[in-house]
Design a binder for these strands. Structure first.
Lengths: 205, 205, 205, 205
DNA sequence: AATGAATGAGAGTTCATTCAT
DNA sequence: AATGAATGAACTCTCATTCAT
C-alpha cells in the first residue's frame, strides 16, 4: 500500500525521461530547455542532475533505451515464427505496432537519425539488422529473389517509415490495419517472394 | 567580363547561403552560430542581417529554395517523357540525381523534415506531389495496380530515401547506377506494373 | 581498548576536519565541495552539518585550531629555554618543526592569510606575537640591537616562511637541518646579536 | 580631441581588468562574480567575453601582466647601478616602490602564489630571479658571504614581503622611508656584506 | 546521529541581434 | 551596404544547505 502513493510518487528519473521525450520530439533537443523539462516533470531543475549527467546524457540515454526496446520487440516478434517470409511479415507488423503503441518513442528514434544523436557511436544491434538478417536468410533459401540483403532492408524499412510518416502527418488516411497489410504485401513484391512454389522472381498471387 | 571578378566578388547573400548550408547540415541549425556563418562566408556578422531577417529566416529561405529546385528537377525530368511508368522511372532517376549532384542541398531537405523547419507551413507543391500525380495517373490508366496513390508515393519515396541514406552512411556499397536501376525496378514491382500487356497485379518481367 | 576500534570508528567530526584540510590546501576552500569532503571523510553530506554550522564554519574552525596548535608549540619550545637569543632560536626551530611535522596544517595557515580566512577577526594570541615578545625582550636587554620589535619579527618570520616556501616548491635544495641552522643564525645577524659580549648595535654602518 | 572623450571612453578591456583587479584582491577570484566585474567596469556581462576567454583567463592575464611589470621594474632599477650591493639595494627599494605605487597589483601578485594562479605554469623570468642573480654575483665576487644564492634570495624577499604585509595590515607603523632603509640594511647584514673592505665571511660566529 | 535526494539561487558562458560608425 | 563591439536574455550546470526518513 506504500508501494505507490500517487502519480507523483513514481521515480523522478522516470518522470524526467517521460517529460523530456515529449518535449524533445516537439521542440528538438537543443530547442528544449532544462527548465521546461523540470517543470513538466514536476521536479526542480537541479534534480535532473541527480539522475543524468547532462541534458545530452539524458537525450542519449533516452535514445538508447528506446532503440533497445524497439529492436527487442522486432526481434521477439520475428523469432516467434519460422520461415523468412513469416519472419519478415512479423517484423513489419511489429514495426507498425511499435509506432502505434509508443508514438513518442518511435518519433524520437526517427529524429535521432538526423540530429545530434546521429553521431553517437553504437555498436549494438540495431532494428535494421533484424531486417538484414531475415532478408539475407530468405535470399539464401531462395524464398526471396537474389538481391543485396542490405538493399532489400533499405527498401522495406523505407516503405514502412514513409508510410508511417505520411499517415502521421495526415497525408494518408488508409486505415491502420489495411496500411500494415499493404506494406507487408508490398514488401513481398519488392523481395520477389514466390510463395515457395517456384523460383523467385515470378510472384503472382 | 565583369560577371565574376573574384570569389569575393560574388553576391554576399549567395556566399552566406552557401556557408550556412554547409554548416547547417553538419552541426544543425541551432548548433550553428551566426559568427561561424559570417566567418565562413567572409562577411561580417552584421551583414547577414542586410540579406536575411534572422537566422531562422535564412534557414527557411534555404529550405524553400532547395525544395523548389528539387521539385523543379523532378518535374522537369518527369515531363520530358510520356506514360506513367516512364515518368515514374524518370522521377526516380531525378531523385537520385539530385542527391548525387547536390548532396548538401539534399541532406538539408531531408533534415528539414525532422527539425525546426518541419513546422514551417508550405502550400507550395512538393516533391512528393510529383510522385502522387504520376502514380494516380498510372492507377487510373490501369498501368499500375489499384492502390491509393498517396500510399504508393510513400512506398516509392521511402525506398529511394532509405536507399540513399544507407548508401550515404556506408551501409550499402551497391554501385550508384545499379542502385538507381534496382530502386526503379523495385518501385515497379510495388506498383504492380504489368508492362502494359494485361491487367495490373501480375507483374512478370 | 575501546579507544580505537577501527579507522571508521574515530570521531566523524575529526574525520571531516582531516578530509577538509587535505582538500582545502589542494583546491582552495571555495574550490572544495561538501560532497568531496563527505566522500573523503566517509560520511554523508548531511552529517557535516551535525558537526559544523556551514562549510565556512568548518574552514574557520580548522584555521583557529591549527593556529592555536602552532602558536602553542612555538610558545612551549620558547618557554623551555632562557634568554632572548635562546628563545628566538628555539622559536625558529619550532617554526620549521611544525612545518615539517604537519605540512598540511602549516600550508593551511599560510594560505589562510591570503584568502577568505584573512578577514576572520581574531584577538587571540598569534604565532607572530611570540616573536614580537622575544625580540622586544632582547632589545630591552641589549642582547639585540635597537630596533622596532614588530619590524624585527617581520624580518625573522619573513625569512623563515620564504625559506620554507622556496624549499617546498623545489627552488631550494638545502638539507632541512642546515636550512634551519642558517635561518636561525641569519636571524641573529638581522637582530644584531652580539653574543652578549658588548652592547648591541655595534655593527656600525 | 576625439582621442579621449571621457573616462568612460577608455578601452573597455582596460576597465574590465582594473575592475577585476580590485575585486579579486578583496574577495578572491572565485569569490568575485562576472556580474560584479561587469557592473564595476561599467560594461555588460557579455562584453567581458569580447576581451577575455573566461574569468580564469582574465585572472591569469592580469597575473602575468603585473608579474611582468613588477619584474621589469626590479630589473630596470637594478640595472641602473653597478656592484652587487648597489644592485641589491636598488632591487629592495624597487620592491617597496612597486608595492607603494601599485598596491593592488602587488597584493594580487602575492595572493597569486597561494591560489588558483599558483598552478599556472610560467617559464618566464620571475621577480625572484633578479634577487638570485644579484646575490649569486655578490657571493662569487666575495662581496657577500659564502651562501646559497637561492637561500639568500629567500631571506631577502621574505624580509621585504613580511615587512610590507605587517605594514599594510597595521601591525607596523614605521614610516615608509625608514622601513625601506631598515630592510635594505638588514638584507646586507643577512648577506654578510662587508662594505668591500675585506673578504666576505669575516663576521665570525 | 545519520542519510542523501531534493532544492533553488546563482554561477559562468553563449549568441542572435542591434546600431553607431 | 558593411562593420563588429556591445548587449542582455537565456542557457546549462553547480553546490551549500535542508529535511523527511
Amino acid at each position: 500500500m506504500e508501494t505507490q502513493k500517487s502519480v507523483k510518487a513514481i521515480d523522478p528519473g522516470e518522470r524526467i525521461q517521460s517529460a523530456a521525450l515529449g518535449l524533445f520530439i516537439r521542440k528538438g533537443i537543443t530547442g528544449t530547455t532544462t527548465k521546461e523539462i523540470a517543470k513538466k516533470a514536476g521536479v526542480s531543475e537541479g534534480s535532473i542532475y541527480n539522475y543524468f549527467e547532462s541534458k545530452g546524457d539524458l537525450a542519449y540515454k533516452l535514445f538508447v533505451r528506446y532503440m533497445d526496446e524497439f529492436r527487442g520487440e522486432l526481434q521477439e516478434k520475428a523469432s516467434s515464427v519460422t520461415g523468412p517470409a513469416e519472419k519478415l511479415s512479423a517484423a513489419v507488423r511489429a514495426f507498425f505496432g511499435f509506432a502505434e503503441k509508443e508514438p513518442d518513442a518511435y518519433a524520437y528514434i526517427m529524429i535521432g537519425h538526423y540530429t545530434e544523436l546521429r553521431k553517437m557511436p553504437d555498436d549494438k544491434k540495431k532494428p535494421r539488422d533484424i531486417f538484414v538478417e531475415i532478408i539475407g536468410e530468405g535470399v539464401r533459401e531462395g524464398v526471396f529473389r537474389g538481391m543485396d540483403e542490405n538493399m532489400g532492408a533499405a527498401f522495406v524499412i523505407g516503405m514502412i517509415t514513409r508510410a508511417i510518416l505520411f499517415r502521421t502527418s495526415g497525408m494518408l488516411d488508409t486505415p491502420y490495419g489495411e496500411l500494415v497489410e499493404e506494406t507487408a504485401s508490398s514488401s513481398m513484391r519488392v523481395l520477389g517472394f514466390n510463395n515457395g512454389q517456384h523460383p523467385a522472381g515470378t510472384a503472382e498471387r
